[in-house]
């Protein structure tokens, strides 16, 4: 299905709803868990899954996600095995499946081949957190040719001029960081309303907010102003700690989904 991500946001908008985008590390704690958990998260009320492709040097990630990626790499997870898994589960789910992937991996495999392999497997979009935006256009266009969204990040420190550059380069949605620093859980809900207003002056794309979003209260606070909430470390930690990662993930995401705000 082409442009599944755009379709999901269009449909939610028409229904006056917001989206939940859980992040999981592909292959953590095992490939088997990843395979089963996607369906479970769909049942729990997720709309798009952000699938982190394990990378040896994830500098934007805090200790929880970095350790999960390290463990996945040790157990032999590769971009190829992640794509194989996606190919297998693609027919079983309507969820949007987005790969969060370092540009180091894309550059090494080669942008053309990476996009081709990802699209063939059934990946619906990419988030590339560390690409040099001055050379991002080519990848965005390659992704667009295969119906994949391409999302770049906007930080609290990003200038207005750059916000409009980033928004113009992104398709599907823009990923807004709730705070400076790395991924990880935080105590207080982010105060992002003024920045979301500012960013909306530069783009009509849906806005997803991540980094530090770790409780149902945070999800409620985020989706009051933004279009989607991204929850990563809090979920990955629970999956690592629990004897049954699938059940733990499903229960937590179900709680989060219950606190999504309606669009006003």
């Amino acid at each position: 299905m082409p442009d599944r991500i755009e379709g999901i946001f269009t449909e939610l908008l028409a229904e006056g709803r917001t989206a939940l985008m859980p992040f999981i590390t592909a292959g953590y704690p095992s490939m088997k868990v990843t395979e089963s958990v996607i369906g479970a998260l769909e049942e729990a009320g997720a709309h798009i899954i952000e699938l982190g492709i394990p990378f040896s040097d994830p500098i934007a990630d805090g200790p929880v996600i970095a350790a999960s990626m390290h463990q996945a790499l040790l157990s032999g997870v590769t971009p190829k095995s992640v794509f194989e898994l996606v190919r297998k589960i693609r027919p079983t789910t309507e969820l949007g499946l987005i790969a969060m992937v370092s540009d180091s991996i894309i550059e090494r495999i080669g942008p053309e081949k990476f996009i081709c392999d990802a699209a063939d497997a059934g990946i619906d979009g990419l988030i590339v957190p560390d690409i040099d935006i001055l050379v991002a256009e080519k990848l965005r266009d390659l992704a667009a040719d295969r119906g994949m969204s391409f999302s770049l990040l906007i930080a609290p420190t990003t200038s207005q001029e750059r916000i409009s550059q980033i928004a113009a380069l992104s398709t599907g949605f823009v990923y807004v960081l709730a705070r400076v620093g790395i991924t990880g859980e935080s105590h207080s809900p982010p105060d992002i309303a003024p920045r979301i207003d500012l960013i909306r002056q530069h783009t009509n794309l849906p806005i997803a907010v991540g980094f530090g979003i770790s409780t149902p209260q945070h999800v409620a606070a985020v989706t009051e102003v933004a279009d989607a909430a991204i929850v990563g470390s809090a979920l990955v930690r629970r999956m690592g700690e629990s004897d049954d990662a699938v059940i733990a993930a499903q229960a937590f995401v179900s709680d989060l989904a219950g606190s999504l705000c309606a669009k006003t």
Binding site: A60, I154, A155
Partner: peptide, 19 residues
């Protein structure tokens, strides 16, 4: 853009760009 020929550039998380 910080390029030495094709090399160099700025492949970093967005938070660092302002700094």
């Amino acid at each position: 853009a910080g390029r030495f020929g094709e090399y160099g550039g700025r492949y970093v998380p967005e938070t660092l760009v302002a700094a």
